[in-house]
């Protein structure tokens, strides 16, 4: 029986080493790179970053199809795609927020500064959930986006928090905002 189990483990180990095993979950220490890779590699072949095809700008996409027989209705153009680095940072924070929620039975709550403090070690096991490369804090302890504006955390439920970056115009709730949850 034991030899049989060891054999299975050996096969699994070799398969993982050869890269045929599914990618491991994104770790709390390097979430940004992993999230970026997964986002950029959607639809591409292989995992070599040099082969990643950048996401095409939305404006260059094919026109919206018009159902046969339906009259054409112009659609408000979507804004330029947000800075990929900002989106990556936002998703890294969202991922770690979810990790926190899974561990403690619910996402951290409160203001930006309170949530940041919880993610940064003020929790029952003093665990740090913020990715260092995306942790820019204001003097008030608020987590800042890539343009230096505090993120807005909207708590919908115990396991759903919408994180909003004000985007390049530094004003919340405008068309260039980017969000993740």
């Amino acid at each position: 029986m034991k030899r049989w189990i060891i054999g299975i483990l050996a096969v699994v180990g070799i398969a993982a080493w050869l890269g045929t095993w599914p990618a491991p979950p994104i770790s709390a220490s390097r979430p940004a790179a992993s999230a970026a890779e997964s986002e950029r590699s959607a639809g591409s072949v292989g995992s070599d970053p040099s082969q990643v095809t950048p996401t095409a700008p939305v404006a260059a996409a094919a026109p919206y199809p018009t159902p046969e027989g339906a009259s054409y209705r112009p659609i408000t153009p979507r804004p330029d795609p947000p800075d990929p680095q900002a989106k990556v940072a936002l998703e890294a924070i969202a991922l770690n927020l979810r990790n926190y929620g899974h561990r403690f039975g619910g996402n951290p709550v409160g203001s930006n500064a309170e949530i940041t403090a919880s993610l940064n070690g003020q929790n029952p096991v003093k665990a740090k959930y913020l990715p260092q490369e995306h942790t820019h804090l204001s003097p008030k302890g608020e987590l800042l986006d890539e343009w230096g504006t505090p993120y807005f955390f909207h708590q919908q439920s115990a396991h759903e928090t919408v994180i909003r970056s004000a985007g390049p115009d530094r004003k919340l709730n405008t068309v260039d905002d980017i969000t993740a949850k």
């Binding site: 039975g105 619910g106 996402n107 709550v109 409160g110 003020q122 708590q155 919908q156 439920s157 115990a158």
Partner: peptide
């Protein structure tokens, strides 16, 4: 104090 005994869970969250 942050003690759970004093705070309802998921304060400030809509559905909770």
């Amino acid at each position: 104090s942050g003690l759970a005994a004093y705070r309802p869970p998921q304060l400030f969250s809509h559905s909770d």
